[in-house]
Design a binder for these strands. Structure first.
Length: 446
DNA sequence: ATTCCCAGCGCG
DNA sequence: AAAGCGCGCTGGGAAT
C-alpha cells in the first residue's frame, strides 16, 4: 500500500489559490462580525465576552441562565454538554435564542475557515500523510503531511472540495463504490444466514425505494421505476418520506442502532422509529440473525475474519453491547476498505495514465490528460470491478465515475443556500459531452 | 512557554 | 442502562 500512498503524498492536490483567498476573506469577515455580536450579547448579559467554543458556555447556560442541563453519552458516561443538539433544544427558551444562533454560526463558520486556511505547500498544492496501517478495520487514515502542511483529506466537505482542482490540461475523475457497505451487508446476510432479500433489494437499482416497498407493502406500488419512486417519496411522517426513512433508518438499523438513537438523529418520535424497525426486521429477517451470528462468534472466539481474510481480535468484554456493536460494523467497513484499496493498488500499478490524488475510504480521485481520459476511466473501472466471494456466494460492487475540474459536486449546498459549480463533478457518460473547463469569473456562478 | 486534555465536529 | 463504527483536527483552558 505504500506505493500508491507515497505516490499521492508526493504529488499533492492542486489548490485554486484565488478561490481559496476569496473564501478566506469572506468567511473571516463573517466570523469577525458574528463574534462581535456575540461579545455584545455577552457584555450585555453576564458582563463577559461569549466565546462560541469555550467550556464556560456551560456556566453561561446552566448556571447564569439556570436552564435545564443537557447531556450526552460518552463511552457509557453521562456528560453535560453544550453541543449543537443541546443548544438546539435550549433554543426553546427564546430569551437565549439570539445567543444560540450566533454561537452555532460562529462554530460552523470557524470550522469551515480552519479547513480552508490549511497551509498549502509553496508549489500551490495541498499534501497529506496517509497512514496505511493506522486503524482497527484496515482502512487508511489521513493527517497533515510530514512537513506539517496540509491536513486530513478524508473529512473535507463538499463546499471545501471546490478549491481542490485538476492541473492545467488535466481532468479530475472521482470513482466511487456504489452503496458498498450496504451491499456487503447483503452478502453477509445471504452467505452466512441464507437470506438473499437485502442483497436483492440493493441490486434492484434504487435500494431505498426497494426497502420502502418491502417495509410498507400496502402502498400502491406497481413495479414501474418512476412510479414507485414517486410513491416512496410521499410523506411518511412530517418532512420525512418513506424513502428518507428507508435510507437513514435502514443504515442505522443495520449497525444495531436503537429507536432512541434513530429518534434523535432523524428528529422523529421514538414510537415511529420503533415501528419502522419492526417493519425493517420483518422485511429482512437475515439482519437480526446476522447480529446474533456476530454475538455468537464474539462470545465463542472474540475474533472475526472478513471475506478478504482480515482478522480482528476484540479485546472488549465479549458480552458487552459495545463490543457487539464494534463487531457488527467491522466486516462491512473493513471489507469495503480492502476492496477499494485493492482497486487503488491495481490502478496505481496498471493504469499509468491515471495520476492518483486522494483516497477517501470508498472512493478514489485521480486526474488524466483530457486525451487519455476515456481510456483511463475505462481501465480504472475495469481494475476496480471484481467479485467478492464468501461461502460460495459472490457479489460485484458497481463503480460509479464522475468527472470535472474541481473536486466538488456541480451543485454545492452551503449554509446560505445552493451554489452552482460549473467546473464540478458530474456523471461520466463516455465523453465530456461538450463540457469545457471554465476559467475566472465564469467558474463561479452564484 | 510548552504540553496535555477535552469538547465539538467533519468525513466514510 | 444505554442508546451504529471508524478516524483526525482545532480552540480553549488546565497542567506542567
Amino acid at each position: 500500500m505504500c506505493g500508491p500512498a507515497l505516490d499521492m503524498m508526493q504529488r499533492g492536490f492542486k489548490i485554486d489559490t484565488y478561490q481559496r483567498n476569496v473564501q478566506i476573506s469572506r468567511l473571516e469577515k463573517e466570523v469577525v462580525k458574528v463574534e462581535g455580536i456575540l461579545n455584545q450579547y455577552g457584555m450585555a448579559t453576564w458582563e463577559k465576552p461569549i466565546k462560541a467554543r469555550s467550556p464556560f458556555l456551560k456556566e453561561l447556560f446552566y448556571t447564569f441562565y439556570n436552564l435545564p442541563e443537557q447531556f450526552r453519552f460518552d463511552k457509557g458516561e453521562r456528560k453535560v454538554t453544550v453541543n449543537r443538539e443541546a443548544l438546539e433544544k435550549l433554543s426553546a427558551y427564546h430569551h437565549v435564542l439570539p445567543i444560540i444562533n450566533a454561537i452555532l454560526t460562529v462554530r460552523d463558520t470557524a470550522k469551515l475557515l480552519s479547513t480552508i486556511r490549511t497551509e498549502i505547500d509553496p508549489d500551490g498544492r495541498m499534501r497529506t500523510s496517509y497512514n496505511v496501517a493506522g486503524t482497527e478495520t484496515g482502512r487508511w487514515s489521513s493527517s497533515s503531511s510530514v512537513f506539517g502542511s496540509g491536513t486530513n483529506l478524508q473529512n473535507i466537505t463538499n463546499e471545501v472540495r471546490r478549491m481542490f482542482i485538476a492541473d492545467e490540461g488535466k481532468v479530475l475523475c472521482n470513482i466511487d463504490e456504489e452503496q458498498a457497505e450496504s451491499r456487503v451487508m447483503g452478502l453477509l446476510m445471504w452467505s452466512l444466514i441464507g437470506d438473499p432479500s437485502y442483497l436483492l433489494a440493493n441490486e434492484s437499482g434504487d435500494v431505498h425505494t426497494a426497502v420502502a416497498r418491502l417495509c410498507w407493502p400496502h402502498l400502491p406500488w406497481n413495479g414501474e421505476i418512476l412510479h414507485d419512486r414517486e410513491v416512496a417519496e410521499r410523506p411518511f411522517y412530517r418532512h420525512f418520506s418513506y424513502r428518507d426513512m428507508s435510507k437513514r433508518g435502514g443504515h442505522l438499523t443495520n449497525y444495531y442502532g436503537t429507536p432512541p438513537t434513530m429518534a434523535r438523529n432523524l428528529k422523529i418520535e421514538e414510537k415511529v422509529a420503533a415501528e419502522f424497525q419492526l417493519a425493517y426486521f420483518k422485511a429482512f429477517p437475515g439482519l437480526r440473525e446476522y447480529h446474533h451470528w456476530v454475538a455468537r462468534e464474539i462470545g465463542l472466539h472474540q475474533e472475526l475474519t472478513t471475506p478478504l481474510g482480515r482478522r480482528r481480535i476484540f479485546f472488549g468484554r465479549p458480552g458487552d453491547d459495545a463490543t457487539l456493536r464494534e463487531a457488527i460494523a467491522y466486516i462491512p467497513q473493513s471489507t469495503v476498505g480492502d476492496i477499494l484499496n485493492c482497486a487503488l493498488w491495481r490502478i496505481w500499478r496498471y493504469c499509468p495514465e491515471a495520476q492518483l490524488l486522494a483516497q477517501v475510504h470508498d472512493s478514489i480521485c485521480f486526474q488524466s490528460d483530457e486525451s487519455d481520459l476515456p481510456r483511463a476511466i475505462a481501465n480504472a473501472r475495469r481494475l476496480a470491478t471484481f467479485p467478492l466471494r464468501m461461502n460460495g456466494k459472490a457479489l460485484v460492487i458497481p463503480v460509479d465515475a464522475k468527472v470535472g475540474w474541481n473536486w466538488a459536486d456541480e451543485t454545492i449546498k452551503t449554509s446560505r443556500g445552493k451554489v452552482h459549480n460549473p467546473n464540478g463533478l458530474s456523471k461520466w457518460k463516455g465523453s465530456l459531452a461538450g463540457r469545457k473547463r471554465l476559467s475566472g469569473v465564469h467558474s463561479m456562478v452564484a
